[in-house]
Nucleic acid binder design. Structure first.
Lengths: 150, 150
DNA sequence: CGAATGTGCAACCGTTGGGTTGCACTGACC
DNA sequence: GGTCAGTGCAACCCAACGGTTGCACATTCG
């Protein structure tokens, strides 16, 4: 009971842990990744490129040129996805709480961008846990073989 | 809309895909990993070692010696965790559907074991997606800089 | 055979969660 | 200053989920 310690169940009161930056809890991140709509949001954020930023609408002019790599707003995402802006906002809140997304207030709008590094870190953690399990299984098999041989 | 393709949303009818083996859908796996009790189950399965297999009970004799690395039953897990056997059974069903756990019927009992390799594969996939996002962000930043200079 | 252990299915309950609608508010633009 | 786009909060609905209880079925052991 010491190798893989993913959840915060056995964690101490956690007193001196300011909201440093990244992942809150792995399970929260998994819960955030457990929804297809949320994946769609993440993917839309991930391939949000310059030129297709604000998308349709913006009749006045080009407007958001310049800081093109700043991400998308909830409304822009709602334009791309078949759900309400409010639903998107909730999803973005979940994703941000899980540390998978970051938000910046620009003018009167809030731009979100995906944090791929957090995803990568989470993946690496999963990888390590899986490897630990496999290793333990191997060890058990070895012991069993040993016992069999006498 | 071509780099990372985690969910099965945009997937074709998927006609000729027999239940090859492992992971059904990544989102299913994440949903499976999004519960603390399920993590506890996985961990209990992961460090299920010889000697502590059937746990307390078994008054008759040693019984399950031999195939000690075969995994734990739902009842044994229910003995270790503060939930009902039925709850454990449901969790195991979810985990098995997600491809994170495997079951073997021995006598009248069903033994489960954790599939660490699947976890590892899932982690690797996450890692790749995160890296792809980061790469795309870098490319966007480069383009923005180019535009600024031009 | 009878008793015990283990499993599986089904009903049920409380809570969470995705999604919508509606409204109030604030910052930008004419 | 008035209007318009964009956000935020709150209420509400319905489906899914975690969990329990209860019972019926199989299988092993005395």
């Amino acid at each position: 009971m010491s190798s893989a310690t993913p959840p915060g169940s056995a964690a101490p009161p956690d007193p001196g842990t300011p909201p440093a930056s990244g992942t809150a809890s792995p399970v929260a991140a998994f819960a955030a990744l457990a929804d297809e709509t949320r994946w769609a949001v993440l993917q839309a954020l991930a391939d949000a490129g310059p030129g297709s930023a604000a998308g349709a609408g913006a009749p006045g002019g080009g407007a958001d040129a310049g800081t093109s790599a700043a991400g998308l707003t909830a409304s822009a995402l709602a334009d791309r996805l078949p759900v309400t802006r409010q639903a998107i906002a909730k999803h973005l809140a979940v994703l941000e709480a899980a540390g998978l997304v970051e938000s910046r207030i620009v003018g009167r709008e809030r731009r979100y961008r995906a944090l791929g590094a957090e995803l990568t870190a989470l993946g690496r953690r999963l990888e390590r846990i899986g490897d630990a399990w496999e290793a333990r299984l191997g060890r058990i098999a070895a012991i069993a073989k040993e016992l069999e041989r006498g």
